[in-house]
Design a binder for these strands. Structure first.
Length: 544
RNA sequence: GCCCCGGUAGCUCAGUUGGAUAGAGCGCCGGCCUUCUAAGCCGGAUGUCGCAGGUUCGAGUCCUGCCCGGGGCGCCA
């Protein structure tokens, strides 16, 4: 039952192992106990509910079981632990020794930017598809949230040890492209765009550029193709500014050209899952958890968007991914069941397909919903937001909340370069540490093997180290739950603990032994913050 | 009608897979720079965790039913 020790888990792993072993001695088959950080300092550095889990199986009161566990845990941990108390309903509270904290800090510092990486229990090959905005307009702030989430999730999964690829699916075929071409044609002619067409001012600009380069008189279909090229140029530039780089761009048109849609439908037909009804061709998605069957080919002979997407996802599966993650807007949630049904129809496990549903993002200024652009038919562009508040603030604010919650971005707050702006809080901690190392270098760091003075571990220092030790758990949690916002919460906690440490603990010139020990704590903190910010796609400046 | 998401401090939101006296930021009040960055720190006030039941040693967290807000239920994409 003991998992192989994972070097990535850090110093706390040994605590969990000791508890599990002591528990196994007492009674077999007790479920894995939690190792938590208790809510209050008096409760020690770590606590476990092991005794409360074992009590019903053993048939004794939790506090009695807890008392029996103490010896076994103490014996295994030696002088790492100073004292173990039984508390409350049966918690075991572990008070770690000063030496244990010093060793832990040195270990974390030694791992540098690697600390917390490789925590995935079962590394797998993952494809994250996100943004995938139609190339018929510039990216919006909604895409900005998708991109921040998708890219950060990819970074986190990669750091955790998975083999991750980012992909953008390009809807470069179909009725929307036709409509886009018709809209451009109308603007060139000085007419209103057709019903339901693209009304944004940028369409006229696209038309002008095409006329300037290729002359007038192009067919709408050609205008659509050239328009997509130009829009794509802009989209790539915006992604670049946002620090997002896709490994692959999948093209719907290419799938059509390769006959992928027909092949996918033929495959499903071979599996006996396709039938004809009222002139259309249907897929039995209802056999795999969907509400009802879905149309693959319309009565007029044209394949549906769903059919093309099935072909696309079949292609993803054939490329050997264990896990497909799609990042979609809330308006697409009704689409999830049918797509998963198709995945299962191809013989892949349902769990191999996941969708992260993104809630909306509003821009707020002065307590009111902000308009980034007042032009008719236009919308809040990501470029305008990047211009306004910068990449760091954009990405950080997008990831401060769970993706399942709508967010309001306060532009006034995001713009200010003051302490009120949460994006600078963690960056400032990082810059402060870098500055501290510069000072240490100027003054000449203390050298030698002086021992660390006893009773030199201040409460703030102890709290900071304990916070750093959460790193592996925080990474695996963010990765497993697909929640980059957990990283954003955690990095602010690390920064807050560092600022308190900085207040209470002199580093440079602290004295023989102590200065080096505290520089190790600072180095560990600096690296952890830099890693976390990088996972969010935010820079870690060395000075501010 | 059915499905998804949310409802936690004045505001915006966290809440580590069911744990101890529910937290943070903003806003409000008051303190702290002759030593490593004050973009910082410290102290102070505020809660029927939407409502009602249930599960158990224990529920903001899990189950059921309601209420409110947002989104979705096409041979559109």
């Amino acid at each position: 039952m003991n998992a192989a020790p994972n070097p990535s888990a850090g110093p706390t792993a040994a605590l969990g192992d000791a508890i599990a072993a002591a528990l196994a001695d007492l009674h077999p088959g007790v479920p894995a106990a939690a190792l938590e950080r208790p809510p209050r300092p008096e409760f020690g550095d770590y606590s476990t509910n092991a005794a409360m889990l074992a009590a019903p199986l053993i048939g004794e009161p939790p506090r009695d079981v807890a008392a029996k566990l103490i010896g076994g845990i103490e014996q295994r941990l030696g002088d790492a632990v100073e004292r173990i108390d039984v508390a409350g309903p049966g918690f075991l509270n572990l008070h770690m020794s000063e030496g244990w904290f010093r060793d832990a800090a040195a270990l974390v510092a030694g791992r540098g930017r690697e600390f917390g990486s490789g925590v995935a229990e079962r590394p797998s090959k993952v494809l994250v598809e996100f943004v995938s905005a139609n190339p018929t307009g510039p990216l919006t702030v909604a895409s900005g949230r998708h991109l921040a989430y998708g890219d950060s999730l990819a970074r986190i999964l990669g750091f955790a040890g998975h083999d991750v690829r980012r992909e953008y699916y390009l809807n470069d075929a179909g009725s929307q492209i036709d409509l886009f071409g018709a809209s451009i044609a109308a603007r060139i002619a000085g007419d209103e765009v057709p019903e339901g067409g693209y009304e944004g001012d940028y369409v006229a600009g696209i038309g002008q550029r095409i006329v300037a380069e290729h002359g007038a008189g192009l067919e709408p279909a050609e205008l659509g193709r050239l328009g997509v090229e130009l829009m794509l140029e802009g989209i790539r530039a915006t992604l670049d500014r946002s620090r997002v780089h896709f490994d692959t761009w999948a093209s719907e048109q290419s799938l059509h050209d390769a006959g992928a849609t027909e092949n996918a439908i033929a495959d499903l037909r071979d599996r006996g899952l396709v039938y004809e009804h009222e002139g259309a061709v249907w897929l039995r998605t209802s056999e795999f958890g969907d509400d009802k069957d879905r149309v693959l080919i319309r009565a007029d002979g044209a394949p549906t968007y769903f059919a093309a997407d099935i072909a696309y996802h079949r292609d993803k599966l054939e490329r050997g991914f264990d896990l497909l993650i799609n990042v979609l807007g809330a308006d697409h949630h009704g689409y999830v069941d049918r797509m998963r049904a198709a995945i299962v129809a191809f013989g892949a496990p349902g769990e191999s397909f996941e969708v992260s549903i993104m809630q909306m993002v509003n821009l707020v200024e002065g307590g009111e919903r902000a308009r980034m652009s007042k032009r008719r038919g236009d919308f809040a562009r990501l470029d305008d937001l990047l211009e306004d508040i910068g990449v760091d603030a954009t990405r950080f604010f997008m990831l401060m909340r769970s993706h399942e919650t709508p967010i309001d971005i306060d532009l006034e707050l995001a713009r200010t370069h003051s302490s009120d702006n949460p994006v600078y809080y963690a960056q400032y901690a990082h810059a402060r540490i870098c500055s501290l190392f510069r000072t240490a270098a100027e003054r000449g760091a203390e050298t030698g093997d002086d021992p660390v003075p006893a009773e030199s571990l201040e409460p703030a220092e102890r709290a900071l180290i304990a916070r750093l030790l959460e790193m592996p758990d925080q990474i695996s949690r963010a990765a497993n739950k697909r929640e980059p916002h957990g990283i954003s919460t955690y990095v602010r906690e690390v920064a807050a603990d560092f600022h308190a440490f900085y207040r209470d603990c002199r580093v440079v010139g602290a004295g023989p032994g102590l200065e080096q020990a505290r520089l190790a704590v600072c180095a560990a903190t600096r690296d952890v913050i830099a890693t976390l910010l990088d996972l969010l796609g935010v820079e870690a400046p060395e000075e501010m």
